[in-house]
Simulated scan of single mutants.
Amino acid sequence: MSLSLDRDKAADKPTLYKKIRQDIESRILTGEWPPGHRIPFEHQLMARYGCSRMTVNKALSELAQADLIERRRRAGSFVRRPQHLSAVLKIADIRAEITALGRAYGYELIRCTRRAANAADRERLGVRKTGKVIAISCRHCADDVPFAVEDRLIDLESVPEAAKADFAAEPPGSWLLHHVPWTEAEHTISAIVADDHTAAALDIAVGAPCLVIDRHTWRSARTITAVRLLYPGDSHRLTARFKGG
């Protein structure tokens, strides 16, 4: 496609490459383009926006630097897939995990509130400045038996589209995995004994052991979410297999 020099000069204003980046970023963050989706080829973006390859390349380069897309030589650009923390521990979708066991999945939203982050929220998320969060408590069941309870914070500054999500219909973990790319995650595994509240939520005895997984996820050093998952200790275990170097 040939373009006049005057048209190129008009199209390649700094605001145009930002518009291209914002348009693509919006499609990624809203889930319209999920992880693994192929971004239109450069010549397609040039035709769509009426600009030069240099303008398109600048927008795609910034998206790659933000870890939203990955560029593959001769193959094109793709929405970046989550990179697991390690080959042993990965972020699992509890709904998919229960279904894979051949059991019926059940979900109950206990509480979902949107609020200004308080000091405890900021400490948990590892952020300093005041912002808004969504605080979610929910329960996952397998064959109508409590499987896990979840206590989650989502940073709305990093994930503004979460404000429009229907967490009464879709579990927050499933929604995040399918809509929000992440680049780094951290698991902390511990054990506790169930207090009255936990025992009631998991339908176990007070004082029974519970497996605890605390997880944080980030995208380009920006916190996405912090979640605590509690499992009945007598029915869950973690297994890891290692190979020597």
Rank of each mutant, 00 (worst) to 15 (best):
L109T: 08
K58V: 14
A201N: 06
A92V: 05
L153S: 09
A199P: 04
A200C: 04
R139S: 14
K9E: 14
F242M: 13
F147P: 02
L202R: 01
P35V: 09
R222A: 15
S2K: 10
G245S: 13
E108M: 11
A92K: 02
K90N: 03
A194V: 11
K164F: 10
C138K: 05
G207H: 02
S190L: 06
P160S: 07
I136F: 02
P160Y: 02
I94S: 04
V212W: 01
D143C: 11
T225G: 00
F242S: 06
S220Y: 03
P172E: 03
T183D: 14
A162Y: 01
R72V: 15
A87P: 01
R95H: 05
A168M: 04
I110G: 07
R111M: 09
K18I: 10
Q65P: 01
D93Q: 01
V206A: 10
M54V: 15
H197T: 15
H236Y: 05
A66M: 13
M46P: 02
R71S: 15
L238S: 05
D8G: 02
R219E: 03
I94H: 08
R38H: 08
S220D: 12
D144E: 15
G245Y: 07
A148H: 05
R241M: 11
R241D: 11
A75S: 13
F167P: 03
Y49E: 07
H236Q: 03
E161C: 05
S158R: 08
W182Y: 15
E25H: 04
Q44M: 12
R152N: 06
I69K: 01
R74V: 12
A165M: 11
R73N: 08
A201G: 04
M1E: 06
W218M: 06
S52I: 10
Q83C: 01
D214Q: 09
I134P: 01
D121C: 08
L230M: 11
A168V: 02
R53W: 08
A208G: 04
A11Q: 08
I94V: 06
V56M: 05
R241E: 14
A194C: 11
R74E: 14
K58W: 08
A116R: 11
D166V: 05
H84S: 11
R80E: 12
E184W: 12
D151E: 15
S86N: 10
T223F: 00
L29E: 12
I91A: 05
Y105R: 04
